[in-house]
Computed example of a mutant assay.
Amino acid sequence: MKTLKTFALTTVFSVVTGGGSWLTGTDPHSRLPELELMAGGAAVAGAPATPGRLVAYDPSGDGRAIEVFGDLATARHIAVLVPGTGWDLEKLIEGSRQANPVDAAQRLLPVMKSMAPDARTAVVVWLGYDAPESIDRQAFRSERAIEGADALVGYVRTLPAGASITLVGHSYGSVVIGRAASRLPQVSDIVALASPGMDALSVADLGTGARVWAARADDDPIEFTPHLRWIGYGHETDPIAPEFGATVFRTGPVHGHGGYYSKGTECLDNLARIILGRAGEVTRVSSGLS
């Protein structure tokens, strides 16, 4: 059944991308200026009230923001969460969608504190790029990820030297990370959640020395994404496929495309373990099933 569904969706993908303005049209969003980061991690004056601290904020267009939870200046374990398709500033601030990265940050920190009470930790919600608005032409292409990767590299390089840094990309956010990985030697771990691919054939193709992890819920429809690259469309190998070479970890009973940060789940516990550097405690799977 899975093979038939994959074949059908691959055929539809080929037909849809085979002509018309959907294929040849240019991205209406021009390259964005650099997102200004507040010195010393200070909060942006006049920015909307949020559960965390907005250290960068740009309301123009779809909007961009960087929100910090915890004491970033003293943290020794830092997670940077990169949201994917459909996220913009308004949705981030409103917190009205499933898999909101702000909720994720607020759920991750207590779990890490419970596992390691004395550890100095921080979580960053990084929406420093213009994510695709929906499952459209831009979501299948890499232009937004390439621009986002440049911005992500610039931001990660500002993080405290010596801290253990984990990048966690959900959906299209993992494509952004894949494009940035080779330029971030200070990153210790990379996590691809619900990934359509990382614009790489394998872990080796990412060009990173970081440990690379991947996970996908059993009923996440993103599994039917065609894992190919054709005239600029598609994001290459499925990160949970054995040939990609990532370490696949168990998610437990999380559901759909947006349940990866659900409270009390094996997925959330495993993310906390990865961020804390407890790789040996992560519950793993040997196949692409979680």
Score class of each variant (00 low, 15 high):
M112L: 14
Y57P: 01
T208A: 08
A47N: 06
V212K: 08
T6M: 09
D189I: 03
V285M: 01
P48D: 10
K113L: 07
P51E: 08
T17W: 06
L206V: 12
T265P: 06
I177S: 06
E36L: 12
R273M: 04
A122M: 11
G197H: 04
A43R: 11
P242Y: 07
I66K: 06
L159P: 01
T265K: 03
R229W: 13
P59Y: 07
A210L: 01
A241H: 10
T265D: 10
E36V: 15
G234S: 00
L289D: 12
I146R: 09
G148H: 04
S134A: 14
A56Q: 08
P239K: 02
Y233Q: 04
D62P: 03
P253N: 00
P101M: 09
T247S: 15
L228I: 14
S202Y: 04
G52S: 05
V176G: 05
E243V: 15
A210S: 12
D205L: 01
T247K: 15
G280A: 14
A104W: 14
A272Q: 03
S96Q: 08
A8M: 12
M38I: 00
A149Y: 08
T24I: 05
G197E: 04
E223D: 15
R157T: 09
S290F: 08
I146S: 06
R31P: 01
R107N: 14
A215W: 01
A180S: 07
Y172I: 02
T225W: 15
R53T: 15
H227P: 03
V254L: 02
D103L: 10
A105F: 00
R211N: 13
